[in-house]
Simulated assay, not measured.
Amino acid sequence: MAQSKSSKAKSDEAITQFCGVTGASAKDARRFLEKYKRVELAIDAYFEDPNSVGTGMSAASTSKLNQLFDKYKEPGGEDITVDGTIKLCEDLNVNPEDVVLLSVAYELKSPRVGEWNKKGWLDGWRRLGCDTIESMQTSLVTLRDKLGSDPKYFQQVYNHTFDFARSEGQRSLATETAQAFWDLLIPHGLNGGALAHVSSKDGDDDVDMSEEGWKEEYTHWWFEFLNERGGKGVSKDTWAMFLEFVRSIDVKFERYDMEAAWPSTIDDFVQWAKARISSGAA
């Protein structure tokens, strides 16, 4: 019985992976997995079968994506690194510091800034239905809009950015680095609606258009506070909770619950911000 449960868990995991990459139904996933056994082979077969794609996603060519990957990867290496990333950005006609590249990093599961491995490259672009520079450029437009307007997607990209941005072997994110990525993400989310103010009334989190929340000015207050405070960097907990803080805090910081499980850095910032408002220095 234990073996049966283990096999079912592996089967369910394979179906989830197949559907995540291809956008196919669970029924189609089972059909291809039963025939090809291995997830990678089943996915390749799915995309190479012109009759299999029924979701509206274009079937991206593995061979075209391999050719593009080889064009940008480090000579003699296995991955695309900084030089290849710069060349890719030039071909895509996108600034290397454009916020949309954080979406691309999430979609392609980039391990760190300026690096892309082949599996992430193939799985990500195929899931997006792209196998040419032109189709990738079109996808960037869609991703930029989604990042700005979709709260759930914004959070997924935001969470990935912490691991993507920190130096290898480091548990925290350097304060200067964290500020650079906040400076990209927070304004984009505020302007697009992904960071629209929410209120927790009666236990429900709803967008509250009647109450003013976080302002772009407060992002710079946050940076000023962190620089004054000093410290070794930004922890993963602070990074993650800061997003919830931005979404939920009222404009005067009056309804902040000091007894809630906020990181001490955010507790201290609220006291700092309230003192600044009270002094009229805002």
Score class of each variant (00 low, 15 high):
180 A>Y: 04
101 L>A: 01
178 A>I: 00
181 F>E: 00
165 A>F: 03
102 L>M: 12
8 K>E: 15
122 L>E: 04
254 E>F: 02
186 I>F: 02
81 T>D: 08
74 E>G: 01
279 S>Y: 03
240 A>Q: 14
256 Y>R: 05
168 E>S: 10
32 F>G: 10
245 F>S: 06
219 T>Y: 01
39 V>I: 09
279 S>T: 08
70 D>R: 07
219 T>V: 05
193 G>W: 01
206 D>I: 14
56 G>L: 05
3 Q>W: 11
235 S>F: 02
42 A>R: 04
64 K>H: 11
270 V>T: 10
97 E>T: 03
74 E>S: 12
41 L>H: 12
14 A>N: 14
206 D>F: 12
56 G>A: 06
273 A>P: 13
123 D>Q: 11
264 S>H: 13
64 K>T: 03
18 F>V: 07
113 V>K: 06
212 E>S: 12
134 E>Y: 07
280 G>Y: 04
170 Q>E: 15
61 S>M: 06
281 A>D: 12
276 R>K: 15
57 M>H: 13
164 F>M: 02
99 V>F: 02
100 V>F: 00
163 D>W: 00
226 L>N: 15
165 A>Y: 03
33 L>K: 08
53 V>Y: 10
196 A>S: 15
238 T>D: 12
243 L>F: 10
98 D>Q: 01
163 D>I: 01
34 E>N: 15
32 F>P: 11
211 E>F: 00
8 K>H: 11
25 S>H: 11
243 L>W: 08
47 F>G: 05
196 A>I: 06
154 F>R: 00
227 N>F: 05
239 W>P: 13
106 Y>I: 01
185 L>N: 10
84 G>C: 04
55 T>N: 15
273 A>Q: 12
118 K>L: 05
262 W>V: 09
127 R>Y: 02
10 K>G: 14
162 F>V: 05
162 F>D: 07
224 E>P: 03
245 F>M: 06
177 T>M: 04
271 Q>V: 11
116 W>Q: 05
37 K>A: 09
29 A>R: 10
167 S>R: 08
131 D>P: 13
231 G>N: 07
69 F>M: 04
227 N>W: 04
224 E>N: 13
108 L>S: 02
178 A>K: 00
4 S>E: 15
7 S>Q: 15
272 W>L: 07
252 K>G: 09
153 Y>P: 12
158 Y>C: 01
264 S>C: 13
41 L>F: 07
192 G>E: 04
145 D>K: 12
50 P>E: 13
217 E>F: 05
1 M>A: 14
82 V>I: 10
189 G>H: 10
216 E>Q: 11
49 D>G: 12
5 K>Y: 13
161 T>G: 04
75 P>H: 02
121 W>Y: 00
172 S>Y: 11
82 V>A: 09
130 C>H: 02
233 G>I: 04
87 K>D: 07
202 D>Y: 14
163 D>P: 04
281 A>I: 03
17 Q>D: 07
60 A>Y: 05
221 W>C: 14
3 Q>Y: 12
167 S>F: 01
274 K>M: 08
102 L>F: 09
18 F>W: 07
184 L>T: 00
18 F>K: 07
185 L>P: 14
41 L>Y: 08
199 S>D: 15
82 V>R: 09
81 T>C: 10
117 N>C: 03
223 F>L: 05
44 D>G: 05
38 R>D: 14
201 K>T: 13
229 R>V: 07
64 K>P: 00
138 T>M: 09
119 K>I: 07
